[in-house]
Design a protein around this nucleic acid. Structure first.
Length: 811
RNA sequence: GCGAGAGUGGCGGAACUGGCAGACGCGCGAGACUUAGGAUCUCGUGGGUAACCGUGGGGGUUCAAGUCCCCCCUCUCGCACCA
């Protein structure tokens, strides 16, 4: 076989070269403009990398290589989100320490990434499991604690008595434990909680300043779920006290016909009458046994029980029966509602179920048929106090809301209020493989460790089985557990919870800036230079939690002066899911998983990179196709033959003479298209333009260096190995990645001739080839002749001529 | 149910602010070179014999609609009793 395109030899040669020459090391050159190009770092699973990971990684790699050639100082790092459940579950099963499996998995991921030719600065590699890293995760926790943003609460967990452990939501299938299928119940446990709700408004507000996908912005907004309304007190009829409710519809207050408390509401005991006690207790027990999921799934029929108690409507003094029902959630608002069945669908369904009265207070619908919930139309009715001193009758709901809210406030019966769906963040796991909390317990009180004692290293263990009490396996390590209060010196017990996986991923982008700093989380000057992240690419599965938690920590760090920007990630893009060849989601069970190692063995890294990008738009979901990989492989082979002879030497067709006008124009068009398409992340169309150029140049017996060399530069971010090799064959020194990006002259992109389509009544009838500077009259005259066949004997009503675009005869 | 996005050849997908629909690739067909080709190169390839018809369906605006407006259908993703 002649010396064709040998991807194996070329790719290993250049990967070795880059490694030896530290080609992609980021230097602290602050004279250049910076570009921070970040991938969401992976959890290094045992399965290794799959082609879906590679899509995002290739995209950021192309952008990084391109930006370097454009003269930017590019920060393009990679690390490992390596704490987490799978390694621990594996340890429980096999006894192999999570640190061991994690190290193996990281080695695999790293080897695979290097094979793809990703231009990370590996000298900045980090792992969330490294004490040098989690020291600062713990440090941030201390800052949160200092500021009152971390607190302890009794929060229900998924407790599995048979397994003697707390389960994560993903370990529960259909309300049973995934392992063994045992019963899972809700059990309150002492947990750390972060007060993310304190930042709800800022998290919502600053969504305005980031360049993110609309869907992700929308999801974050919905997750935060800000709603404006009023809190209103309904005095109890037979006892002291009042039920406080939150409502977004104070305009419907006169339509309240009953009250509902969440089953867990503390006032239930107060309001329940003697004869209802048994029924109420039974209902509460039933509700406690249901998981959140089960409570939510029961959307068919609403259930509830009358407590026997009554509250008083502050507007008209009416006695309203108080019910309990699990459609009211203790965790939202005040855990109690006023029910207005005429104008709320849930209350309407409940009222129908239990034959409670429905009273219309907004005219415009038929409230016996369905709840009328429109706030944009309808007039308030039946809504005045008995003495006539206050009325909102006749108003639109939107006018009535502020009026009645003001009145309630003046009477001391209510107040304007804002509520969020966002809950505080449950920040504790009963697991071994996570960051230990820098907290000790003394006489039931949480004491923080002093900063100098960080990191609090995760203790060695050989048994990863649960403690049996619901505490983490750390509770088994008596020697580690018993300590002394660093302040008072009293005996103390260490916190046994560990942090959730989200913790380490909340701030990793900051550590990449200054990964080896021993004294600070990040050097402030470097932070100011590199932040914010300019481009962040990762899966949409992180659209809410990771991105929201990160933003929350970032804002806290901003408040304490550690970071200089209010938001961490300026531009965010989600790569689409790569499906199997059968158009189904890749999964082991379907047997349609594509292994990147196999693909690289067969076609080479450059071909795989190119195909990842050529499949379709970055953000779209699209199927893998081995035929498609073959297609781009053929393209690379064509590029290879374009410049080489059969012996692997530079082809004699490569000449130093100036290119033809056509070739020059094609080159400038290609530079323009590839440049603009990389900027817009439209890699698929950039590649198709390079294919056009290759096809065109292949036809030419003489291929000018003035075209070929810039073309190799354009290709280099996409197919860096073959580009390095060709660059060498063309007589240049490595590395091509350090060459400047070619520029185009807009004048040279336009041809001196153009084709004008001729339409008759909007239908294409002929075409005209004319010079650029042709006058309208001339075009019209030529077009008339061309279209004579269609115009003959017809009355010409109008001639539309769009300059340099088209001519249309209307008859 | 609510919210967001998307429907274009046999397939993946192009088409800038309304202006030649189907770039590029796959597949398919024909030819060339070959002992041979599942290599390579060249040409062709939306449908229809044609007039014409074609961007999920139906209306509309316009000289002109994949693109703008109204109604409907399908799919994907997210949320799902949040008062």
């Amino acid at each position: 076989m002649s010396k064709g395109y040998d991807h194996r030899a070329i790719e290993s040669k250049w990967q070795q070269y880059w490694e030896e020459h530290r080609t992609f090391r980021v230097t602290d050159d602050r004279g250049k403009p910076k570009f921070y190009c970040l991938d969401m770092f992976p959890y290094p699973s045992g399965a290794g990398l799959h082609v879906g990971h590679l899509e995002g990684y290739t995209a950021t790699d192309i952008v990084s290589r391109y930006k370097r050639m454009k003269g930017f100082n590019v920060l393009h790092p990679m690390g490992w989100d390596a704490f987490g459940l799978p390694a621990e579950q594996y340890a429980v099963k096999t006894g192999i320490h999570p640190a061991t499996t994690t190290a193996q998995n990281i080695a695999t991921f790293k080897r695979q990434m290097k094979r793809v030719g990703l231009s990370y600065d590996w000298e900045r590699e980090l792992s969330t499991t490294d004490p040098g890293y989690y020291r600062w995760t713990q440090w941030i926790f201390l800052k949160l604690f200092e500021r009152g943003l971390a607190y302890v609460a009794e929060v229900p967990v998924n407790w599995c008595p048979a397994l003697g452990t707390v389960l994560a939501n993903e370990e529960i299938v259909d309300g049973k434990s995934e392992v063994g299928g045992f019963e899972v119940i809700r059990k309150p446990m002492r947990q750390w909680v972060l007060k993310i709700t304190a930042y709800a408004d800022r998290l919502l507000e600053d969504l305005k300043v980031v360049d993110w996908p609309a869907s992700t912005l929308e999801m974050q907004k919905n997750w935060i779920g800000r709603s404006i309304g009023a809190e209103v007190d309904f005095a109890l009829a037979e006892a002291k006290g009042a039920i406080r409710v939150f409502t977004t519809r104070p305009d419907t207050l006169f339509g309240a016909t009953y009250m509902v408390l969440a089953p867990e509401h503390p006032l239930v005991d107060v309001v329940t009458s003697g004869d209802q006690k048994v029924a109420v207790q039974a209902y509460r027990d039933g509700a406690a046994r249901k998981s959140d999921l089960q409570r939510q799934e029961l959307d068919k029929e609403k259930t509830g029980v009358f407590t026997g108690g009554y509250a008083v409507n502050p507007m008209n003094g009416e006695r309203l029966p108080i019910w309990i029902a699990d459609y009211v959630l203790m965790s939202y608002g005040t855990g109690a509602i006023m029910a207005v069945p005429a104008h709320d669908e849930r209350d309407w369904a409940f009222a129908k179920q239990y034959q409670l009265p429905i009273r219309e207070v907004i005219a415009g619908g038929n409230v016996q048929e369905a709840a009328f919930t429109d706030t944009g139309q309808g007039a308030v009715v039946n809504s005045a106090t008995a003495d006539g001193s206050f009325s909102i009758n006749g108003l639109l709901p939107s006018e009535a809301i502020p009026k009645i809210t003001d009145w309630l406030a003046k009477q001391g019966k209510g107040t304007r209020a804002v509520n969020y769906k966002l809950r505080d963040w449950l920040f504790a796991r009963q697991r071994y493989w996570g960051e230990p909390f820098p907290i000790v317990w003394v006489d039931g009180e949480a004491h923080p460790l002093p900063e100098e004692q960080l990191p609090l290293v995760l203790p060695e263990a050989s048994n990863f089985k649960p403690s049996g009490t619901g505490e983490s396996p750390l509770a088994n390590l008596d020697a580690w557990l018993a300590t002394t209060d660093p302040v008072g010196g009293k005996p103390a017990r260490r916190e046994t919870n560990t942090m959730p996986q989200w913790a380490g991923s909340c701030w990793y982008y900051l550590r990449f800036i200054d990964p080896k700093n021993q004294t600070q989380l990040v050097d402030p000057a470097q932070e100011r230079y590199w932040m914010p992240v300019d481009l962040y690419i990762g899966g949409s599965e992180h659209a809410v939690l990771h991105l929201l938690y990160s933003r929350f920590w970032h804002k806290v760090l901003f408040d304490i002066g550690v970071v200089s920007t209010p938001e961490p990630f300026m531009k965010l893009v989600h790569q689409g899911i790569v499906l199997g060849e059968d158009n189904q989601k890749m999964s082991k069970s379907r047997g349609n998983v594509v292994n990147p190692d196999d693909m690289i063995d067969q076609f080479g890294a450059d071909a795989v990179r190119l195909y990842e990008m050529f499949m379709g738009p970055l953000e779209a979901m699209k199927p893998w196709s081995v035929r498609g990989v073959e297609g781009v492989t053929r393209f690379l082979e064509r590029v290879w033959r374009l410049m080489t002879d059969g012996q692997g030497q530079l082809s004699t067709a490569i000449v130093s003479t100036a290119p033809s006008h056509d070739h020059q124009r094609l080159l400038h068009q290609t530079i323009k298209k590839v440049t603009e398409d990389i900027e817009g992340l439209r890699f698929n169309t950039a590649i198709s333009q390079m294919m056009i150029l290759t096809n065109e140049m292949t036809k030419a017996p003489e291929r000018s260096r003035a075209v070929i060399e810039p073309f190799v530069l354009l290709l280099s971010p996409f197919a860096p190995h073959v580009a390095e090799e060709l660059w060498g064959l063309l007589g240049h020194q490595p590395s091509i990645s350090q060459q400047p990006w070619p520029t185009f002259d807009p004048v040279l992109t336009v041809s001196e001739r153009m084709t004008i389509p001729i339409q008759v009544n909007g239908k294409l009838r002929a075409k005209l080839d004319v010079g650029l500077e042709v006058a309208r009259e001339e075009v019209e005259q030529l077009a008339r002749a061309e279209a004579a066949e269609w115009l003959q004997g017809k009355e010409l009503k109008k001639v539309i001529y769009v300059e340099k675009k088209l001519i249309n005869f209307v008859i």
